[in-house]
Design a protein around this nucleic acid. Structure first.
Length: 273
DNA sequence: ATGGCTTACAAAGTAAGA
């Protein structure tokens, strides 16, 4: 069973309908995982996605902030949404691929809290909440049974750039939220808690700079290239060899009134895996 | 100069993103 999946922090789904159409026309992902849809479920533009052929739609939205959506051409079943911080914010959605050949593969769509400006939980509660969210995710992974048999894909805006090559300047970002050592430690502990594979870095060597986000404030995002890799695609050990292609669709960052994140597109082949 | 911009919203200025 082959399929493609795109993950994209869309920064308001209603502002970006043309961009979604453009991504679909150019790359036609079978599954689309969106973050920061910034609308309640009732305001989600379902018809727009149905017209594009996404007839299987699961939402975890909230008004104005955050919110995730998973849209699929392949049949999916909603599994759950989890509130890792107990804040009531919409930051997770899990669905299962219904096809028997998928052997129960689950797709987790995440939007980890950004964490505010100051990387000190004593003066910035949002930073503490981000670390708490990552710790709760880690605990959830540790608690899973049958870790070697679990078939799961975890994608989304994890809001941490773990490697030196995941930011434009490791040295200059050590005290900037998203690349501080304590955040990287939390992300790595989470990854190790289920032995997740960082699919992007399976395809693109860790020596090579790789970004998925560029600030709106740069005069020319491509020339200054002060990016970070905040968006991720991970798989469980059972799916380690299932990822057959990967690309950051950075041209989307050049479209008119873009999201500050670019989509990440991955191809999977579950056959015999 | 990694904040210079962008978004949502009982709507003008806040809050939030990262």
């Amino acid at each position: 069973m082959k399929f493609s999946l795109a993950t994209w922090n869309i920064n308001s789904v209603r502002m970006r309908l043309d961009h979604i159409k453009r991504l679909v026309e150019a790359h036609n992902p079978d599954i689309l995982c969106l973050q920061e849809i910034k609308c309640a479920n009732g305001s989600f533009p379902i018809e727009h996605f149905q017209k594009l052929g996404y007839n299987h739609i699961e939402l975890n939205g909230q008004k104005a902030y955050h919110g995730v959506a998973t849209l699929s051409r392949l049949p999916i079943e909603r599994v759950e949404t989890r509130d890792f911080n107990g804040t009531g914010e919409a930051r997770h959605l899990a669905v299962r691929l219904s096809a028997p050949e998928a052997n129960g593969t689950v797709v987790h769509n995440f939007y980890v809290p950004a964490g505010g400006d100051v990387p000190d939980e004593k003066v910035n509660p949002k930073f503490g909440q981000k670390l708490k969210f990552l710790s709760a995710m880690k605990q959830w992974c540790s608690d899973q049974d049958n870790k070697s048999a679990n078939r799961a894909i975890l994608v989304g805006d994890l809001n941490v750039a773990p490697l030196e090559s995941d930011v434009w300047s490791h040295k200059q970002l050590l005290k900037v939220v998203s690349h501080t050592p304590v955040e990287v430690e939390h992300l790595e502990a989470l990854r190790n808690a289920h032995d997740w594979t960082d699919v992007m870095r399976e395809h693109i060597p860790p020596e090579e700079k790789l970004f998925t986000w560029w600030s709106y404030r740069a005069r020319n995002w491509r020339d200054s290239n002060r990016g970070r890799r905040l968006d991720h695609i991970w798989v469980t050990p059972a799916l380690k060899s299932s990822s057959v292609s990967l690309r950051v669709i950075d041209e989307a960052r050049d479209w008119e009134k873009p999201s500050d994140h670019a989509p990440v597109l991955a191809g999977f082949d579950l056959n015999g895996r």
